[in-house]
């Protein structure tokens, strides 16, 4: 098997193109081949340490993306590859009750790695 893999790499390289390895089935979609970053974490209150559900997490890595924290204040997403990425955590105006200050956090990724995993714990202070 190892010998065959070596032969495969040599022949692929000799073809002067990487496209021999990149293919799509005729009725399928292109390969999933991009590097990526998986970010997960929890948003809590700085004062009470209680989870904050329904809060907005937003970022821009080529386009505007958002999500809401779940009932346990948790969030997770694949955000693509980047060197650094600014994430914003904010209180949705539509939510009743205590107001919280917006918080921005910059995270560091690695565009050369196939998959980077980051874990964030965000504590939001009351306004």
């Amino acid at each position: 098997m190892k010998k065959r893999n070596i032969l495969r790499t040599i022949l692929g390289s000799c073809s002067l193109t990487a496209s021999m390895f990149v293919f799509q089935a005729c009725y399928g979609m292109p390969d999933h081949e991009e590097n990526d970053t998986f970010i997960e974490g929890q948003v809590t209150s700085a004062e009470t340490s209680l989870p904050l559900p329904g809060f907005i997490v937003s970022w821009n890595n080529g386009c505007n993306d958002t999500l809401r924290t779940d009932t346990a204040g948790r969030f997770s997403m694949y955000a693509g590859s980047f060197q650094t990425l600014k994430l914003r955590f904010e209180y949705p105006e539509s939510l009743p009750g205590t107001k919280y200050a917006v918080k921005d956090t910059v995270v560091t990724g690695d565009p050369n790695q196939e998959l980077v995993k980051l874990n964030l714990n965000i504590a939001l202070a009351k306004k």
Binding site: M29, P30, H32, E33, E34, F38, D65, M77, Y78
Partner: peptide, 13 residues
Amino acid sequence: HKSLLNAGIGALT
């Protein structure tokens, strides 16, 4: 679109 992106979709036709 957003929920699929967050779930790590990488290719689409």
